[in-house]
């Protein structure tokens, strides 16, 4: 039979050295296991090069792309509830069995014409990185470079958010256009920011997440064996990621410490206030975007 080739896309640039290798491995394994079943995955759009990540949701919906590794923030215009995944505090393995996937799958199918294959990247928190220290859980007087992911939280802490492309963030930090930025624990070195950043606020908040979506028409045309190949590869990544991420979390902290990015650790009441504000602001944003499914998903994905 003919080989089916799936065109894949992701917001992560292929030169990224911390996140992208997971996708490379994912594709390699899919192709190894798929060879016997006439299935092939080919990356055609990684990073901003061939397609703007904010368009990849539409592209996988229409079938221009067959498969994407994409964070919810890039496709929340099609499915507002996608933002909720950054708030989840339960591991993906639990999401698979506790009804979260059962809730998300039909929503993705209906609104986006995709099969929700799974998610990875969880357990890597976001942090504020600063050029001057903060006193307690407040960003009053701070200008922070951020995106819609951070907006409600930055504002709740009394800070001002500024939006620039990441490529301009270095100059902005160095020249004091803003006093810090929000970014996951992983990957500030990819932009050279460790040279101008002085502090990382601990604790982190929210979680990174990469959802894996397959165009529904494509998915339905695959044979059960082909579907199993993709499922297995995805579950394997989720499990491996869960065991390996603490290592990388540790090595990223060490790398930052080596390059002079000191941790400001909030303790006691300030820490509590910081985390509570994050939770309150983050969920309020989700509820505003989807008042119907927001409460349901909060019940499922918030660790009691």
């Amino acid at each position: 039979a003919d080989t089916v080739t799936l065109k894949a896309g992701t917001f992560l640039p292929s030169v990224d050295r911390i996140w992208y290798p997971h996708i490379r491995t994912w594709i390699k394994r899919a192709n190894e296991a798929g060879a016997a079943h006439g299935l092939q995955v080919k990356m055609v759009a990684a990073g901003f090069k061939a397609m703007n990540p904010f368009q990849m949701g539409n592209a996988v919906k229409s079938g221009v792309l067959d498969l994407v590794h994409l964070s919810g923030t890039f496709y929340n215009k099609l499915l507002p509830i996608a933002d909720a995944q950054k708030m989840s505090t339960v591991p993906v393995q639990q999401q698979r069995t506790n009804g979260t996937f059962a809730l998300l799958r039909p929503l993705h199918a209906e609104k986006m014409n995709v099969h929700y294959l799974g998610r990875w990247g969880d357990g890597v928190n976001f942090h504020f990185y600063l050029t001057k220290p903060i006193q307690g859980a407040s960003l009053k007087g701070f200008k922070i470079r951020g995106t819609s992911v951070y907006q409600s939280f930055i504002e709740a802490l009394g800070g001002v958010m500024i939006t620039t492309p990441p490529s301009q963030a270095y100059a902005g930090l160095e020249r004091g256009v803003f006093d810090g930025l929000g970014w996951p624990l992983w990957g500030i070195h990819a932009w050279g920011w460790q040279k101008v950043l002085k502090y990382r606020v601990e604790p982190g908040f929210f979680t990174a997440e990469v959802s894996v979506l397959v165009n529904l028409d494509t998915w339905k045309k695959l044979t059960p064996a082909q579907q199993k190949v993709l499922n297995d590869v995805q579950i394997r990544l989720e499990n491996e990621f869960g065991t390996k991420r603490e290592e990388t979390n540790k090595s990223q902290r060490a790398l930052q410490a080596r390059d002079g990015v000191k941790a400001i650790v909030l303790e006691g009441a300030e820490r509590k206030k910081f985390l509570e504000t994050a939770t309150r602001a983050g969920w309020a944003d989700v509820m505003k975007k989807d008042p119907v499914n927001g409460p349901k998903i909060r019940k499922l994905t918030e660790l009691k």
Binding site: K111, M161, T163
Partner: peptide
């Protein structure tokens, strides 16, 4: 028909 909105700082209809 789908009434998609763009959630940036402002929320607008696509």
């Amino acid at each position: 028909a789908a009434d998609t909105k763009i959630f940036k700082i402002m929320t607008i209809r696509e």
